[in-house]
Design a protein around this nucleic acid. Structure first.
Lengths: 204, 204
DNA sequence: ACGCCGTTGCACAGCACTGTGCAAATCAAT
DNA sequence: ATTGATTTGCACAGTGCTGTGCAACGGCGT
């Protein structure tokens, strides 16, 4: 029980399954207990501790696997490509292939219990946003391969990203509003020049 | 202690301060205990329970305030505006003015303990991204008011948003990769037509 | 049949947190 | 100074989780 260093196939299979199930379980609830994870994996809590000395060690292993795969994909995507645009596109596509498996883990980021409540109550605001975006798409003011609701998600997350940038000192708070507005518009397919001009006009 | 329905100034001031401090404290740690919050507010745990019957009630009040303010700002921004682009721009700017106060609360969304570890380990990947984006900005392939590091945040969050859209069934997984790539490029200021074309070519 | 290894079931100590009760202290204002 | 509202300090029961110890049990190859 204590060692488990010599790899028996049975133990290895269990370890693998625990990791896989833990990934899914931690998505559903980032605070999932060891017991929840163990039971979901068809195993007793004590067994999980046989493979991972602590909860933190389990999660750490999980994250390491994901990051390693993602990192490799990202690097592979941008090798020997001169055009930055193409490099970015290739990287995203490459990452996406891997991310399918880890999509759940990534989503784990957003879904705090608290966050769930926030997003829920923000639904009316988001609904208004969707209407606005839909109108823009219909009138060809906006241009995006995404449907309006998905674009609304991008819209929201973009604002979060700019806020984070301000919090981390990458951007002056004074300019942040304008930058956020311009970025949101360009993400919706408005030409960068037009977006900049419009926002500048509004702020004057 | 039990009633507290009649508003004395002292009690109201305390209540207000508890809410304000709780906001900041919950940002630092979304799982902050009632004791942490109380002490930070210069008050004893028991007193907090005098104002809010439970932890959930406290947080709920907090979220309600934030959502209400945000919602009002968003609505005010897009009143009587025919052009969707202008409406979006106005809304973002209006929301931003309010969000300054609640930036912390919003940021609370991202910062899970788990998430912190993930982003930390993703630093090398992000660094590569920044280099790529910087090159694109230098060569005028990209166009953005944001500095490269901030743009990298937007980049990351956009991917998360598209993943979330897939998870919620707003987007077919098959198309998601291409959509994500196109959206990231347009957010970086690449004209929508060029982005679409480039990604289509890569995928063929 | 034997031994090995992983697994199980149970029990335990420890910890941190929630929500509540109650008496004493404190404050604000009349 | 007395009153009424408010806060404090402490104690308590209840809950749920972590990490560990230990004996018994399971399959599996030899």
């Amino acid at each position: 029980m204590t060692s488990m260093t010599t790899g028996t196939s049975r133990a290895d299979a269990n370890r693998r399954r625990i990791l896989d199930i833990a990934l899914a379980e931690l998505l559903r609830d980032p605070d999932a207990s060891m017991d929840q994870i163990a039971r979901a994996a068809g195993v007793v809590r004590r067994t999980v501790y046989g493979h991972f000395p602590s909860r933190e060690a389990l999660i750490s292993t999980l994250v390491d696997e994901a990051v390693e795969a993602l990192s490799a994909a990202h690097a592979a995507g941008r090798e020997d490509v001169r055009d930055p645009a193409e490099a970015v596109a290739r990287s995203v596509l490459a990452v996406w292939a891997i991310a399918d498996r880890y999509r759940l883990l990534v989503a784990l980021a957003q879904r705090t219990v608290t966050m769930q409540g926030i997003r829920e109550r923000l639904a009316p605001v988001r609904q208004a946003s969707i209407g606005l975006l839909q109108r823009g798409l219909d009138e060809d003011v906006f241009s995006s391969p995404l449907p309006a609701p998905a674009l609304a998600y991008v819209h929201e997350q973009t604002l979060f990203a700019v806020m984070e940038a301000v919090n981390d000192g990458l951007l002056a708070a004074r300019e942040a509003g304008r930058c956020a507005a311009v970025t949101v518009l360009t993400a919706a397919g408005v030409p960068a020049s037009k977006a900049t001009e419009l926002v500048a006009k509004l702020n004057a």
